[in-house]
Simulated assay, not measured.
Amino acid sequence: MFKILILSFLIIVSSIETKAQKIEGKDSTDVNEMLSGVMNRLDIYNTKWLTIGVQHDFISSTFGLQISNGYDERPLIHFEDFSEDFVFKLQGNTDFNKDYSYGISAGWKYPRYLSLLAVEFYKYNYPTRDFDFINFNISAETFIKNTGIIAKLKLGYHDLNNENNIGLELGLSNIFIYQKLYAGLTTGYYFDYFTYSAFIKSFVYKKLVGIEFGYENIDKYDFLKAGLTFTFKR
């Protein structure tokens, strides 16, 4: 009886070791495929997002809508839960009279050495504030290693009241509460004037309801915005 128990024990141990080796081999193959680029690590996950939001500019007295696939929410969502490489945001604002603006942002996540490479276009037509503005820019973002800080470099073209300028902007943002809150600051120089901006973005209820606050200064023009967003899995 004792010999039978010993033999059974050895058979079980041998079976466990064989399964462990198979699992280890599979994991090693998966890792090698990821590193070689044969298999995209995001193929394991397939979570896509849709964000719909409203916003208000207190200074310009405009109201707006925005829609994206999680463009601004990216830093608050774990990369394994964000399967799309292409990200975008569309937005528009109006005072329901003469003033209006619209814009589009589109980017590609994780190109080489970067966390995002993006292009943006914004058009403002605010005759009540004597503000006619076009902003076209290309930006690159990267995480600073071992921190929650994101560094951003932006090369932009401005047409401000029919005056053309090319400039450079530098920004830093930080994740203060993991998957909950991040904020950032940006400053730029366009030869004839400086630009400044600051923002706070946070999820206040799970990954569903978010709030955002932003301030921007372009030459002598100020903008102060607040927004409410709803983010869904799709």
Results as ranks from 00 to 15, higher is better:
residue 4 I to S: 15
residue 4 I to C: 13
residue 4 I to L: 13
residue 6 I to E: 14
residue 6 I to C: 08
residue 9 F to V: 05
residue 10 L to W: 09
residue 11 I to Y: 14
residue 12 I to K: 00
residue 13 V to Y: 10
residue 15 S to D: 14
residue 16 I to C: 13
residue 19 K to I: 09
residue 19 K to T: 08
residue 20 A to F: 09
residue 25 G to E: 10
residue 25 G to K: 03
residue 30 D to H: 11
residue 44 I to P: 04
residue 47 T to R: 12
residue 48 K to T: 09
residue 49 W to Y: 08
residue 51 T to N: 12
residue 52 I to C: 04
residue 55 Q to A: 10
residue 57 D to Y: 02
residue 57 D to C: 11
residue 58 F to C: 12
residue 63 F to N: 12
residue 66 Q to I: 01
residue 68 S to L: 03
residue 73 E to Y: 05
residue 73 E to M: 07
residue 73 E to R: 02
residue 74 R to D: 12
residue 76 L to F: 00
residue 80 E to R: 05
residue 81 D to C: 02
residue 84 E to P: 04
residue 85 D to Y: 07
residue 87 V to Q: 15
residue 88 F to Y: 15
residue 89 K to W: 01
residue 89 K to Y: 09
residue 92 G to W: 03
residue 94 T to D: 15
residue 95 D to F: 08
residue 97 N to L: 11
residue 102 Y to P: 10
residue 103 G to L: 01
residue 104 I to T: 11
residue 109 K to D: 13
residue 110 Y to I: 02
residue 112 R to Y: 11
residue 113 Y to I: 01
residue 116 L to C: 02
residue 116 L to M: 11
residue 118 A to D: 09
residue 118 A to L: 09
residue 119 V to E: 11
residue 122 Y to N: 15
residue 126 Y to G: 09
residue 132 D to F: 12
residue 132 D to N: 14
residue 135 N to V: 03
residue 136 F to H: 02
residue 137 N to I: 00
residue 138 I to M: 12
residue 139 S to T: 08
residue 142 T to C: 02
residue 143 F to D: 08
residue 145 K to C: 06
residue 146 N to V: 04
residue 147 T to V: 05
residue 152 K to W: 04
residue 155 L to A: 15
residue 160 L to E: 15
residue 165 N to G: 10
residue 175 I to T: 06
residue 177 I to A: 07
residue 178 Y to Q: 14
residue 180 K to S: 13
residue 181 L to C: 12
residue 182 Y to S: 00
residue 184 G to A: 01
residue 185 L to W: 04
residue 185 L to H: 07
residue 187 T to R: 03
residue 187 T to Q: 10
residue 190 Y to T: 01
residue 197 S to W: 03
residue 198 A to F: 05
residue 203 F to S: 02
residue 204 V to S: 02
residue 205 Y to M: 10
residue 207 K to E: 12
residue 208 L to D: 03
residue 208 L to V: 08
residue 211 I to K: 01
residue 212 E to L: 10
residue 217 N to F: 02
residue 218 I to Y: 01
residue 219 D to E: 14
residue 224 L to N: 09
residue 225 K to M: 14
residue 230 F to E: 00
residue 233 K to G: 15
residue 234 R to H: 04
